[in-house]
């Protein structure tokens, strides 16, 4: 139940941010991008708040949700997905960097190259950190 309350507070805060964005977008000079993002944020937060309210009414669903959040298989799947996403992203960035070099778009190639190097350095940093920790 504690987790549901935390999620509700977070969603409520995001809902307020969304409403603020919509109000700012429509009161000043109309900013379609801000209006779109605000509307999307309000919609997503409102739907999730309604879903949370429905779950909170049913103790069985609350228990299932709590199990799902702490369950080791879900955490394992999440870690695998994060690892796959990171490897795919770095691989794609590397390929695009090479394409940009080939197309003589040096600035984009340099920026992407630095990004790839940065990600690899961050990986090495955390790898060393966890190696010492465990």
């Amino acid at each position: 139940m504690k987790k549901i309350k935390q999620q509700a507070i977070y969603l409520g805060a995001m809902l307020l941010v969304g409403i603020t964005m919509v109000v700012i977008a429509y009161t000043g000079e109309l900013n379609s991008m801000m209006a779109g993002m605000g509307t999307a944020l309000v919609t997503v937060c409102a739907i999730n708040l309604i879903r949370l309210r429905n779950i909170a009414k049913d103790p069985q669903r609350v228990r299932q949700m709590e199990i799902a959040q702490h369950e080791e298989r879900n955490i394992y799947i999440s870690n695998l997905a994060a690892k796959a996403a990171m490897v795919t992203t770095i691989g794609l960035e590397y390929v695009v960097t090479l394409v940009m070099v080939f197309l003589q778009k040096d600035e984009i190639a340099s920026a992407l190259g630095f990004l790839v190097c940065g990600q690899l350095l961050i990986y090495v940093f955390f790898s060393k950190y966890y190696s010492k920790k465990y």
């Binding site: 228990r63 299932q64 199990i67 799902a68 702490h70 369950e71 080791e72 298989r73 879900n74 394992y76």
Partner: peptide, 19 residues
């Protein structure tokens, strides 16, 4: 699943040897 604090899907995966 309820007794050991996991989802039914985890029990299915364990029994099938996938996890």
């Amino acid at each position: 699943a309820n007794a050991v604090g996991v989802s039914r899907q985890t029990i299915i995966s364990l029994e099938s040897g996938r996890y």
